[in-house]
Structures are given as C-alpha cells and as structure tokens.
Simulated scan of single mutants.
Amino acid sequence: MNFSENISNKLTEIITNELDLNSDKKEIIAYAIENLLLFLLGVSSLVLLGVFSNALMAILVAAAFGGLLRRVSGGAHFNTPSKCLVFGSFIYTSIGILAKKMVEYKLFSSEDALYIILSICLIMIVLLAPVDSESKPINSIHFKRNLKMLSIVFIIMTFIVVYLTENLLFSVSAVMGVFYQCVTLLPIFNKKEVK
C-alpha cells in the first residue's frame, strides 16, 4: 500500500464512520480522496521543481495542456499512481526547462513550427485516440467516439490559443506538453502496462 492510498484510507474511515456509509460509497470516497491527494502532490512537486529550475510558468503550462489532453485521449500507463507521479513530474519539468531554453536561444523564430507540430498531433489524435488501458478499458463505442471528438476539439483549441497568445514561451510550452501527450498514444507504449 502506498503513502497516498494509506492516507486516503484513514481519511475515508474518519469520514464514513461519521456518516455511516456502506462499503461501495466508502470505496468511492477513498478513490476520490486518493486522486485529490495525488493531484495536490503532483502540483506541489511541479511548483517546487519549477521554482528550483526557474521555469515555473513553462512547466505548469506544459503540464496543464498535456494533462488536460490526457484526460480525454488516454495513453500509456504505469502500474502504480506513484510511478506515474514521479515520471510525470520529471517529464514535465524537463519539457518546461527545454521550452524555456528553446525560446531563449530563439529556436522558434515564428509560430509556423508550432502549427506544424500541432498538425502532427491532430493526425495522431485522429488515428490513435482514445487509448485505454487494461485497468481502465473503454468498452462503449459511443464513449470512444466522444473522447476522440473531445481530443480533436482540444487540439483545435490549442491552435487557437497559440494563435492568440503573444507569449512565445507559453505557446512553446503548451505545444510541447500536447506533443508529449500525443507520443504516449503510440502503440509501442501501449502494448501492456508499463512496469
């Protein structure tokens, strides 16, 4: 049992004993508390790494865009939430630092390259999304279609945000976060759960 699961179980016991809830509702509350704790831990780690690396805005933008797309597109999964948290923190910190360096060294003199990358992402989404996992299979064709449409809409919205945003670091960070998330859709990363 990991740290967040242990805390969520203790909090669940306190809450459910007071409310006298059945075991199904206890399980739902435990799941919600664990996800909230993991989210807060993830954001906190990104903020700390962002402050330490002096790339806070770039890291948070990359994580927000990549994370929001992940909610509807799916992608590669680790077998524990803590592994996902550590890997995600490392990846989004790296993306944020890289985005900042790319802007500093003027590797993107215009937004044309960002539009090309987003076009590649759109193709990947159309061909691959949504990607489910063994632990969370998507059985409904209707639900799959909705997730694909939401993923496509998200990429289109990212195009619009990049077009309207004057801050190049924001745009580069957003596109790199989206691109990383699209890479996790590739079949090579989804043959089975990552150990």
Rank of each mutant, 00 (worst) to 15 (best):
K191A: 03
G66T: 06
P137L: 05
F3I: 10
L168A: 04
T158A: 14
M157D: 11
K83F: 03
L118C: 05
I95L: 08
T93M: 06
S82W: 05
S89W: 01
G42W: 00
L21R: 04
G66E: 06
E34A: 15
I138W: 06
E34L: 11
K195D: 14
L41H: 08
L118D: 06
N9S: 12
E5K: 15
L60W: 00
F52M: 09
S171K: 03
L40Y: 08
S8F: 00
F108H: 09
V103P: 10
C84N: 12
E34K: 15
V162A: 07
M57F: 09
N9E: 02
K10N: 10
S8P: 04
N190C: 10
L107G: 09
I160K: 09
V86M: 09
N167T: 09
F87C: 12
I59P: 01
T158Q: 06
F87K: 01
E104T: 12
L69M: 03
A55Y: 00
P137A: 10
K136W: 02
K10H: 00
L114M: 05
V86R: 04
P187F: 09
E134P: 02
T158P: 06
L11S: 01
S23V: 13
G67Y: 07
M1R: 08
L186V: 14
A30F: 00
L69I: 06
C84Y: 05
N9G: 03
A62P: 01
Y31D: 14
I95T: 03
L147A: 00
V178R: 11
S140N: 02
T93L: 02
G177P: 14
Y31Q: 15
T93N: 12
P187K: 02
A129H: 08
L21D: 09
L68M: 14
V61T: 11
L40C: 14
L46I: 03
A30H: 12
L41A: 07
S173Q: 05
E13T: 05
V72I: 03
D24S: 15
D112G: 11
K195P: 15
T158M: 08
V178W: 09
K26L: 01
G75K: 09
S4N: 14
K83R: 13
L21M: 05
P187L: 07
V162T: 14
E134Y: 02
M149K: 14
K26P: 08
D20Y: 10
F154K: 03
I29W: 08
I141R: 12
M57A: 08
S73I: 00
S23G: 04
V126K: 12
